[in-house]
């Protein structure tokens, strides 16, 4: 019989750096799972991606076991990397902090496609463009 799901917890945390402090500890602690085991496993699987945020979707079962899969980094993280900026603009309408080409946006959309709620690549590109604008990144071309 399939195990019964108690909760699904998606953690957006820096690769290779999980530890039992908040937010990991406070997110997983109430579900009574082995937090240290999660941290060690997450860090092992994401060690090659240090410097990126790598989301982990943790499925917790009613018998206190868990499984997890890692996802692609969030759009904002990919945009910052490609644009070469440490953070987005605090006033995105007024202060533009970087420029990207349409091809760069397409590449990000292709990377994120499997984790986005987009029907096709054009829909994914639209989502990426929206996120870029909210961070003060303009798209050229």
């Amino acid at each position: 019989m399939a195990k019964k799901i108690k909760a699904i917890v998606k953690l957006q945390i820096p690769a290779g750096k999980a530890n039992p402090a908040p937010p990991v500890g406070t997110a997983l602690g109430p579900h009574q799972i082995n937090i240290m085991a999660f941290c060690k496993e997450y860090n092992a699987r994401t060690q090659g991606m240090v410097g990126s945020v790598v989301p982990a979707e943790v499925t917790i079962y009613t018998d206190q076991t868990f499984t997890f899969v890692t996802k692609t980094p969030p759009v904002s993280d990919l945009l910052k990397k490609v644009a070469g900026i440490p953070k987005g603009s605090a006033a995105p309408n007024k202060n533009k902090v970087a420029k990207l080409t349409r091809n760069q946006v397409r590449e990000i959309a292709e990377t994120k496609m499997k984790d986005l709620n987009a029907v096709d690549i054009d829909g994914a590109i639209k989502q990426i463009e929206g996120a870029a604008r909210s961070m003060g990144i303009t798209i050229e071309g």
Partner: peptide
């Protein structure tokens, strides 16, 4: 989540229940 990633300590958490 994007906002919390930018301002929060150590990232964001999204949870959901049956």
């Amino acid at each position: 989540s994007e906002l919390f990633n930018r301002y929060g300590h150590g990232g964001a958490v999204v949870d959901t229940y049956p």
